[in-house]
Simulated assay, not measured.
Amino acid sequence: MPRFLTLADVCEQLQISTAQAYALVRNGELKAIQVGGRGQWRVEDVKLEEYIQASYARTERMVAENRSLQNPR
């Protein structure tokens, strides 16, 4: 896998739309850089993996919180 991915590559890997990928970059959830005269976005492969791992952690917390709300002790 190349070190840097295009947003099209990110869209394919995450199975999301281009608009969703741009939103992730714009709001800072997914770290990216702009390169070249046209300012095309590139995402480093490790940054995509960090985003995926953070998403797993966020989901785990959400599931645990919902479980505790449904089953109060």
Score class of each variant (00 low, 15 high):
1 M>R: 04
2 P>A: 10
3 R>Q: 12
3 R>E: 11
3 R>L: 13
4 F>L: 08
4 F>C: 03
4 F>D: 07
5 L>I: 03
5 L>E: 00
7 L>H: 00
8 A>L: 08
8 A>K: 09
8 A>M: 06
9 D>L: 00
9 D>C: 01
10 V>R: 01
11 C>R: 06
11 C>Y: 01
11 C>L: 01
14 L>N: 06
15 Q>P: 01
15 Q>M: 08
16 I>W: 00
17 S>N: 02
17 S>G: 15
17 S>C: 07
17 S>P: 07
18 T>V: 06
18 T>A: 14
18 T>M: 10
20 Q>N: 09
20 Q>W: 01
21 A>H: 02
21 A>L: 03
21 A>Q: 02
21 A>R: 00
23 A>S: 04
23 A>G: 06
24 L>C: 07
25 V>K: 01
25 V>Y: 00
25 V>W: 07
27 N>L: 04
27 N>Q: 11
27 N>K: 10
29 E>R: 14
29 E>Y: 09
29 E>F: 09
30 L>T: 02
30 L>H: 05
32 A>P: 04
33 I>K: 08
34 Q>A: 13
34 Q>L: 09
35 V>G: 00
35 V>H: 01
36 G>V: 05
36 G>F: 03
37 G>W: 04
38 R>K: 14
38 R>M: 07
38 R>V: 01
38 R>E: 11
39 G>D: 10
40 Q>F: 08
40 Q>N: 11
41 W>N: 10
42 R>P: 01
43 V>Q: 00
43 V>A: 05
43 V>W: 00
44 E>K: 11
45 D>Y: 01
45 D>S: 13
47 K>T: 06
47 K>S: 13
47 K>H: 13
47 K>E: 15
48 L>H: 08
48 L>T: 08
49 E>Q: 13
49 E>M: 11
50 E>L: 06
50 E>D: 15
51 Y>G: 05
52 I>Q: 13
52 I>M: 14
52 I>F: 10
55 S>P: 04
56 Y>H: 11
56 Y>A: 07
56 Y>M: 05
57 A>C: 02
59 T>H: 12
60 E>N: 11
61 R>H: 12
61 R>E: 13
61 R>G: 05
62 M>F: 12
62 M>G: 05
62 M>R: 13
63 V>E: 09
63 V>N: 03
63 V>I: 15
63 V>L: 15
64 A>D: 10
64 A>I: 06
65 E>I: 09
65 E>L: 13
66 N>S: 10
66 N>M: 14
67 R>E: 09
68 S>W: 08
69 L>P: 00
69 L>D: 10
71 N>W: 12
71 N>F: 13
71 N>D: 14
72 P>K: 06
72 P>M: 09
73 R>F: 08
